[in-house]
Amino acid sequence: MLGSRLAAAGVALVMVVGSAAAQPARPTDPQIAHIAYTAGQVDIAAAKLALQKSHNAQVREFAADMVRDHTAVNDKALALVKKLGVTPADNPTSEALVKQGEENRARLAKLDGAAFDKAYVDNEVAYHREVNGALEKTLIPSASNHELKALLETGLKIFQGHQQHAEMIAAALQ
């Protein structure tokens, strides 16, 4: 069960890593910006579902943190994209992230109470791990613009914090 969830979370981001390995062409800055932005939007949508469904104070606080932090990072990303005159470009990775996020929310929507809390938090651990891996291995090294690179680096530290926080909650929910 956990294995299949981890596998599902990995699918979209493996495409980024995989495509970088298979072709000399790395993701472009507009693609990178859009992938990072989309990854944030997917996490915000999951957090909003958690705020609707969960009654666990720790889980609700975590979800509120996710909405606030990912919104702040994405606001920075939008401002940077505007400043650089870059048009965010849809790509297979961002599309897969959206699809995977929708499937995840559909799965979570059917759960309630402790089962929902556990599934949401476990997915947050897996999702942040995957996104952080993609940032570290592909997105940050591929970014050309130094401001974009710096924002992604700060984002990585923020999301590593989220991953640790989610791991702590997951352990407490056992």
Partner: peptide, 8 residues
């Protein structure tokens, strides 16, 4: 530590 980012 920071509760939101326990890596701090």
């Amino acid at each position: 530590f920071c509760r939101i980012h326990p890596n701090m």
